[in-house]
Amino acid sequence: MSDLFDAVMLALLLATALAVARARDLVAAVVLFSMYGLTLCLVWQHRGAPDVAITEAAVGAGVTTVLFLIAVARTRREERR
């Protein structure tokens, strides 16, 4: 059971990281990055690192995402092909 959870989470991490790399729309990329951070936070909570998980959820997935979204709003949303 635990192994299955780990395997699903690792697959999700790789899938979201690849999706961040592929996304042309920067808002989509930033939101996918937030999803990547939250998945990582779940992994850490599951593996016995609750302190790191709390900080990653608040800062890595929360504050960083908002800062990126502000930057996208002040620049250009589409990545040039």
Binding site: V20, A21, L26, A29, F33, T64, F68, A71, V72, E79
Partner: peptide, 11 residues
């Protein structure tokens, strides 16, 4: 794109 570079650095 600089923002994509920064996202990569974060990953």
């Amino acid at each position: 794109n600089l923002l994509k570079k920064l996202l990569g650095l974060n990953v």
